[in-house]
């Protein structure tokens, strides 16, 4: 691998890993979601640093250029992370939908109760609070 691309690759991976740690430390990123990024950054760092590792992996996937191996695995990791996020977003959408429906129903019931409470006693025979 040409030394320039190797250095750039190492720097990017080091920056990514360090930045993810910093985001977790500042509580801007939860531990759960940091795992995919740390795994991606560390794997790419190992491939960039170790000539033997990248040679072995390139032979395994049949790549002639080491840089192609880096791009290939970079893309693969990103695809996995995107799929993981799509799954999480689907689950969150479902949760938000359920919450929205329950908020709507609870709000309706709250208003109905408020109407009952505020109704004058001579209209119902008993006071609103007694009805509840």
């Amino acid at each position: 691998m040409p030394p320039r691309i190797q250095i750039i690759s190492i720097l990017i991976c080091v920056f990514l890993v360090a930045y993810v740690f910093e985001l977790v430390r500042r509580k801007h990123l939860s531990e759960e979601y940091s795992m995919g990024w740390l795994l991606t950054g560390t794997s790419m760092l190992i491939l960039s640093v170790s000539e033997g590792a990248i040679k072995w992996v390139s032979g395994l996937v049949g790549a002639t250029l080491f840089t192609s191996t880096l791009f290939f695995f970079g893309l693969l990791f990103l695809m996995v992370i995107c799929l993981h996020f799509s799954i999480r977003i689907s689950a969150l959408t479902k949760q938000v939908r359920t919450l929205t429906q329950h908020i709507g129903i609870l709000d309706h019931e709250k208003k109905a109760l408020e109407e009952k409470v505020n109704q004058p006693p001579w209209q119902t025979g008993t006071s609103g609070l007694e009805q509840i």
Binding site: R97, T100, Q101, I103, G104, I105, D107, H108
Partner: peptide, 12 residues
């Protein structure tokens, strides 16, 4: 009337 806090779509 039940008012949903934001537009959620016909099915919801």
């Amino acid at each position: 009337v039940i008012s949903l806090p934001y537009n959620s779509g016909y099915g919801v």
